[in-house]
Amino acid sequence: MTSTGGVTASWLRPIPSGVAPYLARAGHLGHAGRRLGELVQGRPPGVTGSQWSAAGRASLDVVVCAADTGLPRFAVRFTAPVPDGSPARRAERLTDAVCAAVGLPLLRVESPTLGGAEQVRRFVEYVLDARAYGDGTDPDAGEAVGFRDIVGRLPDGRRGPVNDLGALARAEAVEAYVAGRLADPIVRGLHARWTGGPAEGWAWVEVRPGHCLLERVRLTARGLDCGVDPGRLAEDLAVVALGERLRDLGGGAPTLLERAELLGRIRALAARRDSFDGGFAFDHLCAD
């Protein structure tokens, strides 16, 4: 069963029923472009006035509310990657702290590529569908198929996991290879989950012999069950981002990594396996 995230109604203000939603899905309404301060009734405990003033201005891409009560259930925020220790990173941590103080789970997607309105909508709908599927699955009824593992007909006509967010990008990579725009049609990837921190997903494809296009996505899911393993979801999002980059291949020379450099980065990540929840499951990618 999926978790509701433990929303504390006493601190969260419902969004009035007369406000037109951005989307409606699985018993929830999504409202776009809300500030955190609009959702909270007063300054939460343990948060100073200056901290509250700063965090209250934080913009949330989508706030997902229960359709019957209007109470926020969770929020989604897409951001560009920022360095640790930077003012932007400190601001993000402050937003996290305030969300935790009021019981509002926050899903943050960090990507240099993703963040368009349609990408945000698709992601929110996907999470709602995955959670609804989990809520309807009886864990005592045997080995139920997970949402991400449901098999059906893919966009290119093959059978495969229909709830792979990156399925369309994978099919487009094959088309690009057939058209001579890629050196290899296979999109490869990996994922890991930092202990007590975000999940990280990588996806890459060989554009020219020995030169790869790489996308990385971090997904932070604090206090919320996404309905899909966060690591797999982060990797699928990285594939989606890669697909966006592949569509722009004709518009200019993309920044490519030599295969040897990519291999070095993978090995460096593998060397930090003790920092991952569940270890590192991609040692096969470390071989020459």
Rank of each mutant, 00 (worst) to 15 (best):
E261M: 09
A117M: 04
L29V: 10
E258T: 08
G279L: 06
P83K: 06
R247H: 10
C99N: 13
G189W: 04
D156K: 08
G223F: 07
S59W: 06
L242S: 00
F282I: 01
P161H: 12
D129V: 06
T4N: 12
V47H: 03
R181N: 02
G33V: 07
P16G: 11
W204T: 01
G27L: 08
A9R: 13
C65D: 06
C65V: 14
D248C: 04
G33S: 14
R218S: 11
L213P: 04
P185L: 04
G103E: 11
L237I: 01
L190Q: 11
A58F: 00
V120D: 09
L165T: 05
G251W: 04
A67S: 14
F74G: 10
R43H: 10
Q41S: 14
G116T: 13
V174L: 11
Y177G: 01
A9S: 12
L224E: 08
N163K: 07
V64E: 06
D236T: 01
A203V: 00
I186S: 10
V82T: 14
D277E: 15
A281C: 07
R108S: 13
E118L: 06
A171Y: 12
S86P: 05
D138W: 08
P81K: 10
G157Q: 13
G134E: 14
T255C: 10
R153G: 02
A169S: 11
P105W: 06
L285E: 06
D96P: 03
V98D: 05
Q41T: 12
S111F: 01
A199K: 05
V207W: 08
G37P: 12
A55F: 03
C99Y: 09
A54E: 10
C212Q: 12
R122F: 07
G37L: 12
R148F: 04
G201V: 04
A132M: 11
E118R: 13
E172Q: 14
F123A: 10
V40A: 05
V207A: 13
R181F: 03
L213S: 14
L242M: 00
R259E: 10
G223E: 13
R232M: 02
S275T: 12
F147P: 00
G250T: 02
V239F: 00
V145C: 02
D96H: 15
C212H: 13
V239I: 07
F147D: 00
L39G: 03
T48C: 09
P185I: 08
G136P: 02
R90K: 15
A281P: 00
A58V: 07
R159Q: 13
D288R: 12
L262D: 01
V217S: 07
A179V: 07
F276Y: 15
V205G: 02
E92N: 12
P44W: 07
G115M: 04
A183D: 11
A75D: 13
V64K: 00
P230W: 04
D248F: 04
E200I: 02
D61E: 05
A199Y: 00
G18L: 09
G252R: 14
S3W: 09
T4I: 06
G42L: 13
D288E: 15
E206H: 05
L114G: 06
R232I: 01
Q119G: 14
G231C: 05
Q119C: 03
V145S: 02
R216L: 14
H191I: 07
A54V: 15
T4S: 15
L39E: 03
P155T: 09
E175V: 05
G160C: 11
I15T: 08
Y177K: 09
G251A: 14
